[in-house]
Design a protein around this nucleic acid. Sequence first.
DNA 1: CTAGTTGCAAATCCTTTGCGCCAGT
DNA 2: ACTGGCGCAAAGGATTTGCAACTAG
Lengths: 151, 151
Amino acid sequence: MDTKIPSQITFDDFREFCNSAKLKPTHQRFEIYRELNSATDHPSAEMLYQRVKTNVPSVSLETVYRTLATFEQHGIIVRINAFGDRARFDANLTVHQHLACTNCLAICDFTWTAFEKLELPAQTGNWGRIESQQVVVKGLCNSCLEKESSA
Amino acid sequence: MDTKIPSQITFDDFREFCNSAKLKPTHQRFEIYRELNSATDHPSAEMLYQRVKTNVPSVSLETVYRTLATFEQHGIIVRINAFGDRARFDANLTVHQHLACTNCLAICDFTWTAFEKLELPAQTGNWGRIESQQVVVKGLCNSCLEKESSA
DNA sequence: CTAGTTGCAAATCCTTTGCGCCAGT
DNA sequence: ACTGGCGCAAAGGATTTGCAACTAG
């Protein structure tokens, strides 16, 4: 993957990406990408489905799943397995890490420059070919901490 | 891959743990814990079930799930969500990170001292209370790389 | 027209739960 | 005996798939 996607894309931009990826630039794909790209909460397939439905009432959850899988294979989105129950997705391809609340399951981004500068220990090179590395920091977000203390 | 980490809890510890946690030290629980504790491949519930069955043929998969959940709640094992499809488990409580092969789904440990010395960026303190942080490094293990090149 | 996509329904797969029986203290 | 745990069967919930209709190029 290589095609650079600006943060706000038009249907024409999307069409261009689809052409280079040999994908049909359908209405559904465009809306799913646009919705994910404008989200900051790392939605699940179901969450995304609900949002896309407001613009494309006829869209199906299966299409959302299939489209997300396609996008992931083409490297324009990333799947986040912070929690075991459902996959979460992210269209932000810049290097960043995630904070995940184990109570409300909110996920948010943060940058960790010191980490990004680190090199993997040499031994990992003997294991195979590294393709990605990701930190997930878990805890309780402020809002859940408040609820906890007032309970 | 390498880095043998010898500090896993012993059976006396486990017995003691059951007492202090007010859990009945049943045959099943002992065997499930022992099997996980001696594994280095971060088995899933199903994998563990197959192994425990050789010693306790009557054990059920549901008991494995329930027992793992109990152990996790009591903090003597850790759940790993490296892949979205199934949870993997680890009885090694020492600080370490994971290498995960996206092809064969093997997971192995490695230590990353430089990472462990790092402090989280200050901004994360404003988010809430941090409870854990974990790196997952993904790629293709050597064995899968070989298969790929000979295919 | 033609191949790739979609929606629908059904299937899969992992995991959890209700319940009566069994086991450990 | 009491209480919690177990196995069984069934349910639940996320995700995938077969298929016929549809649509973009």
